[in-house]
Design a protein around this nucleic acid. Sequence first.
DNA 1: CGCATGATTGAACATTTGTTCAAAAGTTAT
DNA 2: ATAACTTTTGAACAAATGTTCAATCATGCG
Lengths: 116, 116
Amino acid sequence: MFNHAKTRQQRSIPAIGEERAAEVADLFRLLGDTTRLRIVLACLEAPVSVSEIATRLDLSLSLVSHHLRLLRAAHIVRAERQGKQVFYSAADDHIRGLIADMVDHVSETRSEDEHV
Amino acid sequence: MFNHAKTRQQRSIPAIGEERAAEVADLFRLLGDTTRLRIVLACLEAPVSVSEIATRLDLSLSLVSHHLRLLRAAHIVRAERQGKQVFYSAADDHIRGLIADMVDHVSETRSEDEHV
DNA sequence: CGCATGATTGAACATTTGTTCAAAAGTTAT
DNA sequence: ATAACTTTTGAACAAATGTTCAATCATGCG
């Protein structure tokens, strides 16, 4: 159970309290780069190797690895070695939900803009 | 109902499709700055004026205004003038849900780290 | 009108951050 | 051990971004 939105009241968010604000912002920032987000999206469905990500997204091996290091440190993706290759996948379903929600928001924002 | 996580299947996110990746990343990036996120948090409960935000967060009026302009452009906050003051509030409940979810993720990640 | 208050804007500065390149580390096979 | 392949790492560069300061706009009041 990764998401409890339906059980949340309208005005919840119980005092995120300044301290954690920085940590939360760090998470958002990591998903806030197009290249990095595309890499996460590539890891969302099934585990993929670094070279496959690089090929599919047309990025250098080095760049992909750099980004994956950051994503791994933030527990957004998980790494699993299998022979010479390292396969990456989304750390949990939480990530999936978060991204899906943001996509929804973008869609809604768009349709709002249209008939204004 | 801003969040449909529970009704989402494991492997959803129907091909966010490269195009929208940039838009989604833009949204994430806006929430990925600590100062800006604190400002959003301040607008979450009830409408607040620019000067009140600046005072409560100990930031310059100018800085707050700059950030609010970006947040407004992305439909994350709404502005409403009332006399000399301008009150800002969260654009919709979607935003609330997104932030709450991210806070959850940080919390979970933390507890994972603890007993590892 | 002239003045005070509140908010916005633009340009300059200071950091941060993404990207590249070359080198190194880990793995498997010959 | 050498060689081929995959991934990681570090330093250097280039570009984007947050912050500040001063000036301007907007609103309400004496």
